[in-house]
Design a protein around this nucleic acid. Structure first.
Length: 311
DNA sequence: AAAAGGAACAACCGCACAAGA
DNA sequence: TTCTTGTGCGGTTGTTCCTTT
């Protein structure tokens, strides 16, 4: 006996999200922050269940998510952590702040499993089990680091949990991408754009998450060129607060349409979107923070590189 | 050029758990 | 204490894209 479904399934849209839906969701979250997912479909008019909205945000739209190819360093981290923790994707993801558990899980299932099997077969055709993977990796990786990982796990997890990073550029790019996308534009295109966004931003969310920077986190950060920073959470929040990012009152448009928002865009909404876009583009750039963080982290990153013989 | 098969990944489903009423 | 709600998590499925024939 599980819980009842999060929403009744009648009239609920399933399948891939459209750019329009993404925009609506992002706009709403910009305004209200993530959370209270049950109210999201009601307030936005999205024909999605709350859970779907949350997942979409968590796994795809949330700023600071890095998409695309995993670096060899990340691969190594995943392999090692998987051997240590098993299929605890969320736990593993906490060491790779830019990656979602879903992403890691997918990557494991589609790439790493095969890779490891191949490697094991090559090394020892008779033994091909997960435990040998661990031994193989761990041997190179070093016992001490393994212990560090475990010791730091709780601190990191705590640290991650309160993170909500907003990225002006991310949202703005998303809007731009949607604005200029032809009807034929696909998820792939969005992927590409998100990729660009994240490359540009180099993950601002890291600022928030790295307050209690541990050695492992620096290590993880290395893979991403992410920052092991020394900015306080408060500072971060004030720099990139939701208030700073929010613009046109969303309620306005939804209030003026008591019958509920429909999925198709009205002129009013398009106007709302373009106004938002304009405002977002005029937000102060955050690149100086990125630069500062990258400079700050550069030294540590190099150190970590030295310490990781197998990756 | 078209079809088939496989790979990759986004999204869904069901369950568990914590918090609050 | 019990029930409801919100959220997290891991497994699985479905769709799209890519490669091969």
């Amino acid at each position: 006996m599980g819980r009842p479904p999060c929403c009744d399934k009648v009239g609920i849209k399933k399948g891939p999200w459209t750019p329009e839906e993404d925009i609506i969701l992002v706009s709403y979250i910009q305004e209200h922050g993530p959370g209270n997912w049950r109210s999201v479909p009601t307030n936005t008019g999205l024909l999605r269940c709350s859970k779907s909205c949350r997942l979409r945000w968590t796994n795809y739209l949330r700023p600071g998510i890095k998409r695309g190819n995993f670096t060899p360093h990340e691969e190594g981290m995943i392999i090692h952590l998987q051997a240590l923790l098993g299929n605890k994707w969320a736990a593993i993801a906490s060491y790779l702040p830019q990656r979602t558990d879903n992403d890691i899980k997918n990557y494991w299932n589609t790439h790493l499993k095969k890779k490891i099997k191949k490697l094991q077969t090559a090394l020892d055709p008779h033994k091909a089990s997960d435990s040998t993977t661990f031994q193989l990796v761990s041997k190179n990786y070093g016992e001490k680091r393994s212990l560090d990982i475990i010791n730091n796990a709780s601190a990191l997890t705590l640290n991650q949990s309160s993170t909500y990073a907003s990225s002006t550029e991310n949202i703005s790019r998303l809007l731009e991408g949607w604005m200029r996308s032809s009807p034929k534009s696909t998820t792939l295109k969005r992927d590409q754009e998100n990729n660009d966004i994240n490359l540009d931003n180099n993950d601002i969310s890291g600022i928030g998450t790295a307050v209690a920077a541990t050695s492992l986190q620096c290590y993880a950060a290395k893979a991403e060129q992410e920052s092991c920073d020394f900015i306080s959470h408060e500072e971060f929040e004030s720099l990139l607060s939701i208030e700073n990012l929010s613009s046109v009152a969303w309620e306005k448009s939804s209030d003026s349409n008591p019958s509920g928002y429909q999925a198709d865009f009205t002129d009013e909404r398009l106007h709302f979107m373009s106004e938002r876009k304009h405002r977002l583009e005029n937000q102060p750039p955050v690149s100086f923070i990125e630069k500062w963080l990258l400079d700050e982290a550069a030294g540590q990153v190099e150190e970590m590189m030295e310490l990781s013989p197998i990756f």
